[in-house]
Amino acid sequence: MKKIKKIIFVLLYLVLLTPLYSNGMHIMEGFLDPFWAGLWSVVSLPFIVIGFSRIKKITDENPNKKLLLGLVGAFVFILSALKLPSVTGSTSHPTGIGLGAMVFGPMPMAVIGFIVLIFQALLLTHGGITTLGANVFSMGIVGPFIAYGIYIVLKDKNRSLAVFLGAALANLGTYIITSAQLALAHPDSVNGVLGSFVKFVGIFAFTQIPLAIGEGILTVIIFNMLLEY
């Protein structure tokens, strides 16, 4: 029982670290040309492959874990469909891809993130098939790693702050990576990639910064709630 409680606690933990991304940050179908679509897929591929082999090891040891991965994946998908109350009135997307990284390791969660992003593309039209590689990189890999890293570094100093920063900065990190991906694919006609990057960062800042803060707050509340439980 103690062990289960520990696992639950650890899982909860990650829900809290779960970055929330805005709906607006999924790069839509057809938005990247073949070169960039391919490049980001190649970049994400090793994470998926390594993650997949970790999952295989986990499920070979205990096949019931397939069930857990299925449940966690569905949970992450549901979080991504929930609307976050936001100051700007826009709705956001808690994509809990970081969830479970502690139980399964961050690598396997890239695979879960990958599957969830496929379902988002197919069932919700958030993102797309050709832009999957780019979206996996920003949301399934960079986001969770930032959240995980910040949390590990800061948790002993101030847990709430660690949770808040982990969630908020993961969100911001994802948004900056996505902006960079967009800028690289669509350089500004006058100022090139850098000019384009500044524009994307600027224009998405309107929704992303309040959302990042909102997500940080939400995550802290849930975190404390789960600690009580």
Binding site: K66, G70, G73, A74, I115, F119
Partner: peptide, 10 residues
């Protein structure tokens, strides 16, 4: 398998 399970549980 995991893909199908996620789909079912969603």
């Amino acid at each position: 398998e995991i893909y199908s399970l996620i789909y079912r549980f969603i």
